[in-house]
Simulated scan of single mutants.
Amino acid sequence: MHVFKITDTLPLPKSSERIPRLGFGVYRSPPNQCKQSVRKALDAGYRHIDTAQFYANEAEVGEALRDSGMPREEVFITTKILSPAASIEATYDKLLASVHKISGPDGYVDLFLIHSSSSGSAGRKMLWQALEKLHAEGKAKSIGVSNFGVGHIEEMRSYAQVFPPHVNQIELHPWCQQRVIDDYCQRNGIIVEAYSPIVRNYKANDPTLVEIAKKNGHSTQQVLIRYALQKGWVPLPKSDTPERIVANADVFDFDLDVEDMAVLNDLDQGSAGAIVEAVNNE
């Protein structure tokens, strides 16, 4: 029996910071809608919000938190940067702009990620060194990566002052389990976050998933989020529907048994099962 609570946190590697075990994603949630959804998520018990520069709603996440009246330190906020600017200093300025949008001029973010490995070796190095500067100043409590494979992370050893990265956020669900990078991160103490954990509902009618959902008396979405939790991942379900926001957090009163987990594990299609991106591990 896996006993989890919505208030559970996990320790980040070589850090005093902890990350909530369940997060709430706001991928491309329109600005006004984003504010409403974040408020609903906070009301439902989420204490971990995941945004990005690319989503164009960082400011709204910050506004929703301030409007909620919740103390800043009680909510873990992540954002991401997609590509570097012309220099480390200019890249740092891009990072700082996000911090200001979310938490104001004297604020911070809890986690700042490189959103993609697509900038090439030089770009990734510049991004990381800018993030390290932000981290050293306390404006990012922790720093990490997203969509990085084994080779991308290993490459960082030659220059990173903060290593390993605290987090790697990748696409994860039964059809895309990314076992090579997942195993690497688990062995190296890197927290693995799962984006698209409910596969954007594309698999809601999958017969195998539906059968397991019926057996456990929960929705297919709840089964997939629970699966991610039991795999040791930090799932980041996204919804702008109030009822689903609440339901996606209601995953702590049941347990997928060994047979359920084995059946879901057998659905893996490797990189072919990705709906967004499977990492390159070379």
Results as ranks from 00 to 15, higher is better:
Ser118Lys: 15
Asp268Trp: 14
Thr79His: 01
Ile6Asn: 07
Glu211His: 10
Lys141Tyr: 12
Thr7Glu: 13
Pro84Cys: 02
Leu236Arg: 02
Ile198Asn: 08
Thr7Ile: 15
Arg47Thr: 15
Asp268Ala: 13
Arg21Ala: 12
Phe252Thr: 03
Val279Cys: 01
Cys34Asp: 06
Ala97Ile: 15
Ala52Glu: 08
Met261Ser: 01
Thr79Ile: 12
Glu171Ala: 00
Tyr227Ile: 03
Asp268Thr: 10
Leu229Phe: 05
Leu22Ser: 15
Ala272Lys: 15
Glu132Asn: 00
Asn248Glu: 03
Glu259Val: 07
Ile225Trp: 06
Lys141Ser: 07
Val61His: 14
Ile143Glu: 01
Leu229Gly: 02
Pro31Thr: 11
Lys80Ser: 01
Ala97Asp: 15
Ala122Asp: 10
Tyr108Asp: 02
Ala56Trp: 10
Tyr46Asn: 08
Arg21Thr: 14
Glu74Ser: 12
Phe254Arg: 00
Asp253Cys: 05
Phe148Glu: 04
Lys5Thr: 15
Val276Met: 13
Leu267Pro: 05
Gly217Ala: 07
Phe4Asn: 07
Cys176Gly: 03
His115Trp: 05
Ser16Met: 13
Ala44Arg: 09
Gly217Met: 04
Leu236Asp: 06
Ala85Phe: 00
Leu42Cys: 11
Glu193Pro: 09
Gln33Pro: 03
Asn281Ala: 06
Phe254Asp: 02
His173Cys: 08
Thr78Lys: 01
Asp106Arg: 01
Tyr184Pro: 03
Asp206Ile: 14
Ala228Cys: 15
Val75His: 08
Gly144Ile: 00
